Amino acid sequence: MEPITEREIRASFVNCTKGEAKRLSLPADLAERPWEDLDFLGWRDPAAPQRAYLVAPSDDGLVGVALRLAAPGNRPRRTMCSLCLTTHQGDGVVLMTARKAGRGGQQGNSVGVYICADLACSLYLRGKKDAGPGSRLHESLTPEEAATRTAAKVTGFLARVVD
Score class of each variant (00 low, 15 high):
62 L>C: 08
27 P>N: 00
157 F>A: 03
13 F>T: 14
97 T>H: 11
22 K>H: 06
23 R>D: 05
136 R>E: 10
34 P>K: 01
61 G>V: 07
136 R>Y: 03
148 T>Y: 06
32 E>K: 01
18 K>N: 10
47 A>K: 10
23 R>G: 03
160 R>Q: 15
147 A>L: 12
127 G>D: 13
76 P>V: 02
102 G>T: 08
94 V>T: 05
55 V>E: 09
35 W>P: 11
95 L>S: 06
66 A>W: 02
154 V>P: 14
155 T>G: 11
54 L>E: 12
73 G>S: 12
91 D>F: 09
53 Y>F: 15
107 Q>D: 10
8 E>I: 04
141 L>A: 13
135 S>L: 12
64 G>T: 05
62 L>Y: 09
53 Y>D: 08
115 I>P: 03
8 E>W: 04
154 V>D: 12
102 G>Y: 03
2 E>H: 07
118 D>F: 06
56 A>C: 13
4 I>H: 00
58 S>W: 01
92 G>L: 09
41 L>M: 09
114 Y>M: 14
146 A>S: 05
113 V>Y: 03
49 P>H: 04
91 D>I: 06
90 G>K: 11
139 E>P: 00
72 P>G: 11
128 K>Y: 15
69 L>N: 11
82 S>K: 03
54 L>A: 07
90 G>M: 04
22 K>P: 01
86 T>V: 14
41 L>Y: 13
152 A>P: 01
55 V>G: 03
58 S>A: 13
135 S>I: 11
147 A>Y: 07
66 A>L: 11
9 I>A: 00
94 V>P: 00
149 R>I: 06
89 Q>K: 06
95 L>A: 10
18 K>M: 08
150 T>P: 02
154 V>K: 10
63 V>P: 02
93 V>Y: 05
159 A>M: 05
106 Q>D: 13
70 A>P: 02
99 R>T: 10
140 S>T: 15
4 I>N: 00
111 V>A: 10
80 M>K: 00
85 L>S: 15
161 V>H: 00
47 A>N: 09
114 Y>E: 12
125 L>G: 05
102 G>W: 02
156 G>A: 14
146 A>F: 01
102 G>R: 01
81 C>E: 12
